[in-house]
Each structure stands twice: as C-alpha cells, then as structure tokens.
Design a protein around this nucleic acid. Sequence first.
DNA 1: CTGTATCCGCTGGGATACTG
DNA 2: CAGTATCCCAGCGGATACAG
Lengths: 146, 146
Amino acid sequence: MSVGHTGVTTSAESGSAGPVIVCETPQDECGVRDVLDRLGDKWSVYVVVELTPGTKRFKELQRAIPGNISQRMLTLTVRRLERDGLVKRTVYPTVPPQVEYELTELGRSLTHLVKALADWSIAHRPAIAASQAAWDAAHTGEGMRG
Amino acid sequence: MSVGHTGVTTSAESGSAGPVIVCETPQDECGVRDVLDRLGDKWSVYVVVELTPGTKRFKELQRAIPGNISQRMLTLTVRRLERDGLVKRTVYPTVPPQVEYELTELGRSLTHLVKALADWSIAHRPAIAASQAAWDAAHTGEGMRG
DNA sequence: CTGTATCCGCTGGGATACTG
DNA sequence: CAGTATCCCAGCGGATACAG
C-alpha cells in the first residue's frame, strides 16, 4: 500500500472477502452508507467545512480543523476525499513543497447538506442534551449501584 | 455498565480522560460532531430510515435493516437513539415480551435530512464511483509494483 | 512543508451463550 | 421475543521516525 496500513480504498477491489453491505433493497436506503461512511470518517466533514470558504494548504487545514487531527489522518482523509472526487489536490513543485486543496463541484454540492446537518445539530443540541441528561438520570445505578 | 463493554454513553460523564473534541470554535462547525457521531454509527441511520414509515418491533427492525445487524449492535443503537431522544421505546409486559420502537418528534425532524443525504448519495454515486475508478487506475502499482 | 511507514492501544462490532 | 454478558478480533487512529 502507499499510504499506511489502512489504505485509502475502503472496501471495493482491495479484498474479495468483505461484502460489508449486501444491498438488498433496490435503491432507497442502499446508497446511504456510501455517504455516511465518508461523513462518519470523523474528519472528512471538517475538511469539507474548512474547504468551503476556499482553497487551503495542508498545514492550514491541519491547524483549522478542531480536535488536533494528526498528519496521518489528515493525509488519509484528503486522499479518500480526493478519490471520491470531492476534493481537488494541486501540487506546486516548489521548495519547500506546497499542496493546495479545494472542493470540486461535487464537493461543493455537498456543503449545503453539511450545513443543514450542522444547523440541525446546533438547533437541537439543547433538546438532545436534555434528553441525554434525563436518560442518564433515569438509568444511574442500573447495574453499578454496589 | 448495563449494556455490555461499550456502554451507551459516548464520551460525556463516563470517563474523565477523554475530551474527544475541544470545541474551540464558537458554534459554526462545532456541533456537527454530535450528529455525525450518531449518524456515523453505521447502523443509526438505518434505524431512523426503517422507523420513518412507522412503529416497528425489535425483531422487525433487525430483519428490515440491510447488512445483518447483530442483536448486540441493534440494542446498542436503539439505546443510544433513545438516550438522544430520537426514538421512543415502548415495552408491553406480555409473554413473550414485546417492545416497539418509534421516532419521536425530534427523530422525525431528522428524517428529511437523512432523506436529503440518501438522495444526494444516490444522485452522485455514479460520479463518485467514476472518480474512484479513475483514481484507482491512476494509482495502481504505486508502492506495490515489486 | 508534505507525506509515508511502523508500532501500538483502544474501541467498534461480530459470534455466542445465557436470562427473563 | 427482547436483552445482557463475555470472548475475541479487525480496524481506526494517535505518536513517532524517516524521506523528498
């Protein structure tokens, strides 16, 4: 492999023993996984968010993303995004090297969904937090009251 | 814990050594993780999708979800969803026991976003697949040609 | 600066057996 | 049927060292 032990490709063409999702249903919820796997990547969303305003370099991206993403994960993330056609990577063969990342048309078409997700999250976070608190309160000492 | 080695609570109040996300930014992309963590759960989305038409029992849910979700994961998933206030769980103390799951108001407010995600995924899957194929073709034998 | 290869811990998640 | 507890493994993801 070229990018570490995980590789960039997720499931296809790499191993012949991992169906992952059988895809029985015709088209309804079948493709959701494709996006969610990318969105659930823990970092992909942030890259998309940070790239929404415009082009950013590797280091800029790393600094902009909250949560201290490691070099390794940023590389893996942008590579996957690039492979999916959501991000365009441009290398300037200078010294020191400079690499710029930007959203493609496809990537930009996702930003409004990410925005919607973020809006929903922000709008309902209080409700969710309250629900969690209530749940926790109702379940404290369920199997650990000794 | 009451539900296995993983527990239901994700990060808060359980351990004091896991900040996970520092949340430096005021409110822009900060709350995205909350939703994405839930959506990236690999199964949560499917539960929401399957519950969109209406109430379902545990076993029904398990059968309806593509990819053969295990009992354990379905339990964990619906518990988390319940804790977040997205799903309501109703137990009928019959023999044999019967438990019904349904979306709450909060949960239903998410369905249109999930739908949007699914639509986007379906609409752009060909483009993504093409991009992946192109990327793979351009990167075959990068570090494994020996 | 940008990226790759290696080591390693942690957690998600499957299989299974048991309870009510 | 619904749920819990245990075992166990694969993979994600962090830290680090090294290369162009």
